[in-house]
């Protein structure tokens, strides 16, 4: 059966929807590195290409995708929730943003 979402690496905090997901949809999400399938329920609509949390994430958490940090949460996120620009922010371009300390390498 075609999958509905995918995980890049086993240690990732998020999966990516490969179809529009409905609220309440129960998912069995395969991982591209061949590691174990994870079971998560989408708690809200997740459009194709968008991310959902694989576990509860506190505010200020460094989110892993591709096994690498892709940003920091700006609010607590529950398992199955949509993860996007409303609750995830880049760690880069730090010096380019007025009034912020440098975080760029």
């Amino acid at each position: 059966m075609a999958h509905r979402a995918l995980i890049h690496r086993a240690q990732d905090d998020v999966a990516v929807a490969v179809a529009d997901l409905e609220p309440g949809e129960r998912l069995e999400i395969p991982c591209q590195d061949g590691s174990q399938t994870q079971r998560v329920t989408a708690v809200q609509a997740i459009p194709l290409g968008h991310k959902l949390a694989l576990r509860d994430l506190p505010e200020g958490h460094e989110v892993l995708e591709y096994g690498q940090a892709v940003g920091v949460t700006t609010a607590p996120i529950r398992q199955g929730e949509h993860v996007h620009v409303h609750n995830l922010r880049s760690k880069r371009w730090g010096k380019s943003v007025a009034g912020q300390a440098s975080q760029a390498s």
Partner: peptide, 20 residues
């Protein structure tokens, strides 16, 4: 502030949240 153009509006609509 490149945050306004990287990722682009099209990227964000598609689900990309950050430049990383």
């Amino acid at each position: 502030n490149l945050l306004g153009s990287q990722p682009t509006e099209g990227n964000i609509r598609g689900g990309l949240s950050t430049i990383e």
